[in-house]
């Protein structure tokens, strides 16, 4: 297969997987509640906590943005990280591996589809936060917000690809690990408070999960000084872009390594162990 043909093949496979992700997610209306409404409802509690503490209004906006972005982390965990594990449980993982397409194309399709589907669902958070709770933000640069968002998502979903490969090895632990990674990452990423609050530890935490820097940069675009940012937006965006590249390379290497390892150890098609 020539390089050009290979690339087209890659894109087609990614498109096919993204299509399933987007269309499939809207075929189960109940999932809309868990993926879109629940993170937004949780966010309301945090906004009301700020209100109860008498915090400036900018903190409420900060919590709303965190709540909206928490849906993306949930999607990375359950839609990317555990996806190959779900496929294993359904007995479909073998089909992925025998199909004549790149595994990275499948993961790319899952990531792109996940970002698009979650973005559509984040409307629930926007409605609750800005509509029902009456939180307001000053005028902001939409273009810059879109750039920061896309770079953040690239880094975040590249991490999701790594998790996806790692979960190939997991049995029942996959569910528990995903469960255990939810709130700790909210904390490490400063989803509901400025990351700078954590002092020197903030940079260390931001270096582990790209969500932290992404949230911080987006908050600065929306709120300016009131976001209490960790570093200037261009610096955070550049770091995020670097992280995206590195994480994608690691994901590629890990997928190949862990696929071989799970085949050798006989775990690739093993269910409920």
């Amino acid at each position: 297969m020539r390089l050009g043909e290979g690339f087209v093949h890659f894109l087609r496979a990614a498109y096919a997987r993204a299509y399933v992700r987007i269309v499939g997610s809207f075929r189960e209306p109940v999932w809309l509640i868990s993926d879109a409404v629940l993170p937004a409802v949780g966010m309301c509690a945090f906004v009301l906590l700020y209100r109860a503490l008498g915090a400036p209004a900018s903190f409420e906006a900060l919590a709303v943005l965190g709540g909206i972005l928490s849906a993306f982390w949930i999607n990375v965990l359950w839609g990317m990280g555990t996806q190959l594990y779900w496929e294993k449980q359904q007995g479909q993982l073998q089909l992925y591996f025998v199909s004549p397409v790149s595994r990275m194309a499948i993961l790319t399709g899952m990531a792109v589809g996940g970002v698009l589907a979650t973005t559509l669902r984040s409307v629930a958070g926007i409605l609750l936060g800005f509509g029902v709770l009456g939180v307001r933000v000053p005028a902001f640069d939409v273009g810059l917000l879109a750039v920061v968002f896309l770079v953040s998502m690239a880094a975040l979903y590249a991490l999701g690809m790594i998790l996806s490969s790692a979960f190939l090895l997991f049995g029942r632990e996959a569910w528990h690990v995903s469960n255990a990674l939810q709130e700790p990452v909210y904390f490490m990423s400063g989803l509901y408070f400025p990351l700078r609050t954590l002092g020197a530890a903030a940079w260390a935490l931001a270096g582990i999960v790209p969500l932290g820097l992404g949230v911080d940069a987006m908050r600065q675009v929306l709120l300016g000084e009131a976001a209490h940012g960790l570093a200037p937006v261009p610096v955070e965006t550049a770091i995020l872009a670097g992280m995206a590249v590195i994480l994608l390379i690691v994901a590629r290497l890990m997928l190949a390594h862990l696929e071989n390892l799970s085949k050798r150890e006989g775990r690739l098609a093993q269910r409920w162990q």
């Binding site: 503490l53 008498g54 915090a55 469960n179 255990a180 700790p184 509901y192 408070f193």
Partner: peptide, 26 residues
């Protein structure tokens, strides 16, 4: 595993409080 999630929730609340403590001390 059993304590990780509740502990993280507690730390999120603490983070929120630390963030606003200089401006809103309740």
């Amino acid at each position: 595993y059993a304590v990780l999630r509740p502990l993280a929730m507690a730390l999120i609340l603490a983070g929120m409080y630390w963030a606003v403590a200089p401006q809103a001390a309740r």
